[in-house]
Structure formats: C-alpha cells, structure tokens
Design a protein around this nucleic acid. Sequence first.
DNA 1: GTCTGTTATGTAACCCGTTACACATTTGCA
DNA 2: TGCAAATGTGTAACGGGTTACATAACAGAC
Lengths: 333, 333
Amino acid sequence: MATIRDVAELAKVSTATVSRVINSNGYVNDETKKRVKEAIEQLNYLPNDVARSLFKGRSQMIALFVPDITNPFFPELARAVEDVTNQYGYTFVLCNTDNDNDKQMDYLSALQQKSVDGFIMVSSSMTGEHLQHIQVPIVALDRIISPDMSSVTVNNRSGSRQAVQYLKSVGCTRIAHIAGPEHVDNAVYRMRGYLDEVKDEDWFNSSYVVSGAYNFDAARKAAMNLLTRHPEIDGIFAGNDLMGAGVLNAAASLGKKVPDDLAVIGFDGITMGETVTPALTTMAQPIYEIGKSAAEILINQIGTSDSGVVTEEFNVQLIERQSTLRKAETYEQ
Amino acid sequence: MATIRDVAELAKVSTATVSRVINSNGYVNDETKKRVKEAIEQLNYLPNDVARSLFKGRSQMIALFVPDITNPFFPELARAVEDVTNQYGYTFVLCNTDNDNDKQMDYLSALQQKSVDGFIMVSSSMTGEHLQHIQVPIVALDRIISPDMSSVTVNNRSGSRQAVQYLKSVGCTRIAHIAGPEHVDNAVYRMRGYLDEVKDEDWFNSSYVVSGAYNFDAARKAAMNLLTRHPEIDGIFAGNDLMGAGVLNAAASLGKKVPDDLAVIGFDGITMGETVTPALTTMAQPIYEIGKSAAEILINQIGTSDSGVVTEEFNVQLIERQSTLRKAETYEQ
DNA sequence: GTCTGTTATGTAACCCGTTACACATTTGCA
DNA sequence: TGCAAATGTGTAACGGGTTACATAACAGAC
C-alpha cells in the first residue's frame, strides 16, 4: 500500500502539501495540485484511515445496538440507520446485544477503544449510570434509556388505544391483550394504552391481559392458552407483529377463523405482517423514519459536540389488512 | 482518556514495560507487573485500538457483506458470523450491499482504509477480478464468487432434487418451480435440481418453471399467475422460503387448500417458515453452521496468512411441516 | 574466573496522516 | 513606495501504541 510519503516523493512536494490536496485544506497552487493528483492516481493511493483516526481521535464509525437482529423489526431499523450514516460518510457497525448487559458493556469498551464517534441504542437494560462515562454522543431508539439522553420513539400508549378502539369499531366485544416483556418500556406503554380503553368495560377481566415476550413462540403459546380458557374472546391486540403472527398461528391451530371469529391486530408494521395469512392488521411505526431520525440526531450531536437533549416521538398509523377486515366492515368501506 | 504514558509514569516504568504487561510479552518482573496493573486499574486505562491498528496494520475487524439485511435468511447468518468473530476478539461489521457493485466497491475501499482484517461475502455480482487487488483474505458464503476463493455453500442441486422427490412422495403429480433470480448461482443450481427430477416426466411442461426474485412479492405474483393458468398444479417447489411464503399467500387468495390441493416446499429453513400458516415445509440449510464455518475459515486464513483455498459444502435437510403434510401422509407416519 | 544464557528494563524509531509554525513570495491598497 | 494580507510550501511535532536494539544484572557451566 502506497503511503502519503510515496505520493509526496513522486510529486516532488512535501507530505503536508499532499495532505492539503487530499483534504482540500489551505493553499495549494493549481499546478502543484495537478501533479499531486496524478501521483495519487498513479500509485493508486488511498489514505490510511487508521492513521487519520489516531490523529483526530475520531474514526468515522457509528454503532447501532439492537437486542436481536433476527427479529425482523430490527433489520428494517438497521437499514435506515445504515443508509443515513453511510450517506454522511460514516461506517456503520451493527451489534447484537441479546439485551445482555455484559455483552453491551463489552461492545461499549471495544468500540470506545476504536474511537467510535457515537452510539444508537435500542436497549431496555442499559441505564444512564451504565453510560455516564461514555465520552461520545448516544441516542436511544425505540426505548427510552434516560431522561437526559436524546431519544426517538413512537406514541406507544395512544397508538395502542387507537388499536383497541379500532377492534371495537370492527365489532369486537371481548378484547384481550398479549403483552410484550415487562422490562421493556414500550411494552408497558402499549399495555397501559390497552387498559385505558378496556378497564371500564363491564366485560373486562384482568385475565384478558397476559404477558409474554416479543417473539412468536411465547405469543403463540399464550394465545393458545387464552383462547382455550376464554373462548368468548373475539379480538386480540398483540404487543407487536411477531406476536400477532403467533396469535394467528394459535387461532389456526384451534380452528378459529380470523377475522370472523377473532380479529387480530399487531404493532410495528414490519413487512412480515404482509406475508402471513391472513395478512396482519397493525399499528405501523414509521420504522425507516425513526431510524433515520435517530441517525440524523446523532450525527448532528457528533458534529456540534452539543449535548442538548432531543426527544422525538413519532406517530403510529393504522394499516388495515385481512386479520381484522370482516365481511361486514369490508362492505362498509 | 489515560494513555500508556500516564500508566508508565504512575507505575514508574517505561511505556515498553507497560506494553509488555498488557500483551503478556517479553520479561517483566512480578513486582513490576503488579505495580503496572495497579496503575492501569487506578487510571481506568484502556489501550487505544487505533494506535495499535496503525502499528500492526490490522484492526481486528471482520466485515460481512449481505445483499439484503431485511431478508430474514441473512440476519440468521449474520448472527452466526457475529458470534464467532466476537468470540475470537474481532469486531463485526455488517454491510448491506443491495448486490450493487458500486456499493460493494465503496465498502471495500472504505474498509480497506480502516485495515479490516478480512471479508465474508454473500455476493452474486462480485467476481474474482473485482477482488484481485484486495490484500486480505475473503471467504464467499452462500454463493461462490470464484474457484480460487474459499467458500461455504450447501448442496443446492441435490437438495432440490430431494425436495422434488419428496413432493412426489406425498402424491404430487404436477410439480412446478418458482425460481430465484437467474444471476444468483444457487438459484440456478436449485432450478437444475428441479429439472433433473421432472424433465423426463410425461406431464412436464416448460411453463412449469417460472423465474422470479428472492422475495415475497415476486413469488406471490408468479404463483398467482401460474396457478391461474395451470390449475392442475398440485405441488410447488419455491426457490427459497420467502418465496414459499409468497406461494402460500397466493394459494390462500385463490382459495386453494394447502396442503391438500397444493403442497408447497421452500428452501433455506429460516425461522419465518414456522410462523406462516400453514407452516412451511422446507429444505433447511444449516444456517448457523455455514455462517460459523465461513467465519472460522476466514479467521484461520487471517491467522496464518495461508491463502489455501477451502471449499465446504454442507447438506440441506428436509423439515416437514403443514404445507406438505397431507392427511394420508400424516397417517402413514 | 570467564563465558553464555536468562531475566529485566529502558531508549527511540516506527506506523501514517495532520497541522502548527516558519518562511518566502506575491498581491492589493493606501 | 511601503506594509499588510493572501498565497504557497516545507519542517517537524504529534497522536498512542509496539518492538528492535542496547544495556545490565545475575545464574549456572566449565
């Protein structure tokens, strides 16, 4: 690999001048600039980013922490973050944390040692204390980490209310909720939103709320259980789309017809919701937008070393699909 | 951030000695070692990886190129690569290429400038020529790039034959294939495997093979078309599981009962196959294993700078699920 | 007692860009 | 004409580790 000194020698200038040409810094005569550019071309020279990073103390890398890359919500989010960070010339590093604190702390120090410029974190186990000694900006995504850290989230609670209202509007009279994990803030907000809408209904019964995990299997089992024990249930609001798919699967196993016997709505708006049968109605997050926004906030904070806290809350949007489109309603539209 | 000089000063030794302690290199007196370790502890010192990388010309980073992170096959693969690379102390960088050559070349130079230690590539657009000037080891995964580059793949052709044989064994007498993109080698092998099994059947008709893309929508449309035009088809071998899900969706739209009117088998063995209704029978790749194997081969080549070409081919395995489990067959088991 | 090998530690060059500072020349304006 | 500002380029220190080489003390062998 050619170095800047090789280029300097070939162009008969100093390394400082080459550096000026590369970075369009300071004064360089047009004639000289041309010679340097030719030398660069000839030697196929690429500047060594490591040397650059060492001097600057910055590496042009941004890391995204997600709990589980095999949950389709996160690749969609990662995609957005990657696009934006690349666009601004950063290298994107994806870290899978399993929401395990040790793994997150390991990644944090490994990446700090590499002079990473900033972090975007989807985490429900990190706290402000864990992160207080981190020198670079951090933006929390999808889940709030601490009130004094920038974050990008959605209106989980009111979105959930909307989901339940919608189930009522398609004629559901016994609506259950299969909730996400209790230690994840957005799962809690979603459950609260559900409760806001149902707690005063005379049919409401606390056993209509069951808690699970943000995955297919747990939701499937929970739904099997719930629907067996409470055959009167005719609507389920699932904590997310993956869980919604689990509910659909359970319904099929039990011979319940969706949407006619049971209407199902999820949350997130992942592509997978379109691929299940019947397609899953959902409260869609603007996934790409929130990822993009988190990346932009972070990059802005990196640029300005301004530690002002920015919190953005996006709105979710109802997307109707087959899992709630009962014949009667279909006609109404 | 404390530097090695701060540690040296506090421990009253030279930086060389501190370096020896950190890396367990050369001779250091036990007493001295203890003093240095205390100083490191006290200053909360972490070595700067950038400085290290600059000197060594290596960064302890490994990059994985995948065409599309939102296709669930790749996160599962990435998961394996990440686990193994982390285990060996490497930082894992995931790059989404869209199979776009420019994007891949951009990533290649950006990462080379960062002294990345090696690449694992899922690519059907890169060739040996594109990569000939890359100085670090590369392992091709899922798709072969060049005969003189290490690779990890599966027996696509014989696996596909097995899939078609299996459809025959559950009673299918008109079997179609919705193929993956023609520019992807494994899609071609899968199609060949299909043809091996059907080309001599008297019912075979070249319009039973339609080509699509490795995604849900294209497969869905292709299946709608195929099944409308050829209502006699009673078995479909889809190019991968995502396409299999598309076929299931098309069947549902057309009121075809799966598996009784139409048996469907996919390829890949992604988790998503279990979450669709009915669950999708598939020729499962040992996804985690192939990712792991690619990472191990790469790390081995990095360690030894041995450029010997290793090619591994894993076997796929039939996983029977509802999409082919006809009642008759169920009883037979 | 001398020689060799092991143990222990320090000095300084090196990896490769970046940039503060120095110096020289030219331009512009009073 | 005189002086400040703009232009052009080089020298060398710097960032933070690593390691070749030098040096020295000491143990064991002959």
